[in-house]
């Protein structure tokens, strides 16, 4: 196939056992500490759930890990590379899909993917081939030539994810990938995440939906006011609150017990 002719052998996964490590990470905006001495250790491989209400510091943390934002203090490493000192090495390993689909709405689906592929060094022809392949896999072939502006929420999200896997990333940040999606599109995004993990990628997923974390995540960190307040597998987290509760707890109960408020509040408290 054409793909192997083009150069450098691919993605090395697992040169470090940790995909992400942070110690004492701090970021303030004005007087507010959005991220407050955050310690995080995310093993390579699998899905790590980042769970918390709006304003808990999830997005700020991801922006720091994705080299978009400079921490005020503390350190953060992605596959052993410091996000500040060694930002370019980090950028080689990661991919990002924003909470608000960060694709260009003025361009068509295929133009968005070709742009992405060209920036990653694909030849003109190979970029087009790769774009078509991804559009097909994400069920977007019919809309390939249409401006993204006219896409439905689910289509935009799928294109956004497609743009982030033009080259399979070692670490993918998925920031609230299913917010505002109908159940069908949500299932599709879940399927994509599962497939990515099968292929060896690590996925850091933020969500406010308990069922999503329960279903996808191997490990979950519950974050509130910029700190990790609990960490474990979904089962462990449920057990931790089971003592105070007579019924079978759900992750919703866990969340309520830990943070004192329900998870799916629309606005930050």
């Amino acid at each position: 196939m054409t793909r192997s002719q083009h150069g450098i052998p691919a993605t090395e996964v697992g040169t470090s056992e940790w995909a992400i490590r942070t110690t004492g990470l701090v970021k303030s905006f004005g007087g507010t500490r959005a991220v407050d001495a955050l310690d995080l250790a995310v093993p390579a491989g699998g899905v790590y759930g980042f769970l918390g209400p709006n304003g808990a510091g999830k997005t700020t943390t991801i922006r720091m890990l994705a080299t978009l934002l400079r921490p005020d203090s503390g350190t953060a490493e992605v596959f052993g590379h410091d996000v500040v000192a060694d930002a370019d090495a980090v950028r080689h390993r990661i991919s990002l899909t924003g909470q608000f689909a960060s694709i260009d709405e003025d361009l068509t689906g295929v133009e968005n993917l070709v742009l992405q592929a060209r920036l990653l060094g694909f030849s003109r022809r190979f970029a087009r081939t790769r774009a078509d392949e991804l559009l097909d896999a994400f069920d977007l072939t019919d809309a390939a030539g249409k401006q993204v502006k006219g896409y439905s929420g689910g289509m935009k999200r799928r294109l956004d994810v497609a743009a982030s896997i033009v080259v399979t990333p070692d670490l993918l940040f998925l920031d609230e990938p299913t917010t505002g999606l109908d159940p069908r599109s949500r299932n599709q995004v879940w399927e994509i995440v599962a497939t990515l993990v099968e292929h060896g990628s690590t996925v850091l997923l933020t969500t406010q939906h308990m069922d999503e974390a329960d279903r996808l995540a191997d490990l979950i960190a519950v974050i509130d006011h910029g700190r990790v307040i609990a960490e474990g597998t979904p089962a462990q987290l449920k057990v931790s609150v089971a003592a105070d509760s007579d019924a079978q707890p759900t992750l919703d109960d866990v969340f309520l017990a830990l943070t004192g408020h329900p998870a799916d509040k629309e606005f930050a408290l």
Binding site: R3, G7, T11, L120, E133, D136, F138, T168, P183
Partner: peptide, 20 residues
């Protein structure tokens, strides 16, 4: 609801990183 799962696997099979 399912996507073309076979295609998805193909699309994700390791793509060689190009020279930037």
């Amino acid at each position: 609801a399912s996507l073309a799962t076979g295609n998805l696997h193909d699309a994700l099979s390791p793509i060689a990183r190009q020279t930037l």
